[in-house]
Amino acid sequence: MPSFDLQDAGVRELNAYLHSDGSADQAVTVEHPGGKHNVAAGAMHDTRVDIHGHVGYYCAGMNDRALVTVHGNAGPGLAENMMGGEVRVRGNASQYCGATAHGGLLVVEGDAAARCGISMKGVNIVVGGSIGHMSAFMAQSGILVVCGDAGDSLGDSIYEARIYVRGRVSGLGADCIEKELGEGHAAELGALLERAGMDPDPSGFRRYGSARQLYNFRIDNVSAY
């Protein structure tokens, strides 16, 4: 099993390995990340990566296929622009986790800070704790699930992403409104919670989304989202 101790090896060495074909179907452990930046960025293959410790900026950015688990906290920009696979943080994540992410599943078991899921474009994000202000700003598509509370201006200028929050929402941003949580939504939410390893019971959640007054929405185009 390949192992990288970042006290000795450079982050580039780790990432070059994760970009190489040889990393496919491997399980990789990373020790002593020490808050370093860009740990496991751009992993391209079906690789399991377990990072033991806290990471700095941009961990698992652009993740394509790997299953990356941080057994610790993550700094700003976790899983920024991830395309697929799964990124999981056992602790807390700093600001703008999952920003602009196109696909895959991002799970933060603790809290996520401000601007979680900002401009998300198809990723599914599940946060076990609470999220900070301005989360899901201009979120275009995908699902954001928050088991705790959400800070101010949730979903400001949101497009067609769907937001589910179980706790208190400090305030909704421009053009974001509460919407009915129907049976289909409950099924979608329960399935996502289960995939994320959380309590799959969707009761107690509320759904939020776009009032579609701020952007030029045409019902004829709904299938495009």
Partner: peptide, 14 residues
């Protein structure tokens, strides 16, 4: 129990 530390980033605290 021994100290309080702050930094822009965790890697300084590490």
């Amino acid at each position: 129990d021994d100290w309080v530390a702050m930094s822009s980033e965790y890697r300084a605290i590490a």
